[in-house]
């Protein structure tokens, strides 16, 4: 994939990537009781990864993104299965409260692991799709090259 030529875009992209990451993390956590959650957070982070890739010509994630899909699925499934080992029904979420310094009392729930699985699946799927499309476009350009002299 070639570098995006616009200077403004290239300069701004990196700060935006970090803002998006934090924003995605915030959405991930607030999803427990409010709109948000692993799915939306996954989309936001995938957009951040895409931005980074377009501006720096380098991947934010070096591991093969398509392997995130089965890992996420397994994480979500195992979170569902875990309560069965304790005699509860499938998908039963454990929760409780703990007090942290500065943050005060917060609620924890085992459902967050399930959400993390969803997050990984969404990031993996989105980036895999984008990768495949980008490969297609790149191969189109490389075909164009000898005939027209254009393309990247």
């Amino acid at each position: 994939m070639s570098r995006f030529p616009d200077v403004v875009f290239r300069t701004l992209a990196l700060p935006v990537v970090f803002v998006l990451m934090v924003f995605g993390f915030h959405f991930f956590l607030r999803g427990h009781n409010a709109p948000g959650g692993g799915f939306v957070a996954g989309l936001i982070v995938a957009v951040a990864a895409l931005l980074a890739r377009m501006s720096r010509d380098r991947r934010l994630l070096t591991l093969p993104v398509e392997s995130l899909i089965p890992i996420g699925l397994l994480l979500a499934a195992c979170t569902g299965v875990a309560p069965m080992l304790f005699g509860h029904n499938f998908l039963k979420s454990g929760f409780g409260y703990l007090t942290l310094p500065f943050a005060g009392e917060i609620e924890w729930a085992s459902a967050v692991l399930f959400d993390a699985g969803v997050f990984l699946v969404v990031v993996g799927t989105t980036l895999t799709i984008i990768d495949l499309l980008a490969e297609d476009v790149a191969s189109l350009h490389s075909h164009e090259d000898p005939q027209t002299g254009e393309g990247s």
Binding site: P70, I71, L73, L74, A77, C78, V81, M84, N89, F90
Partner: peptide, 16 residues
């Protein structure tokens, strides 16, 4: 839940 779960987990493992 097992007829749903076994294929789910094994499908994910097969991808790996």
């Amino acid at each position: 839940a097992l007829p749903v779960l076994i294929p789910l987990v094994s499908g994910a493992l097969l991808l790996l």
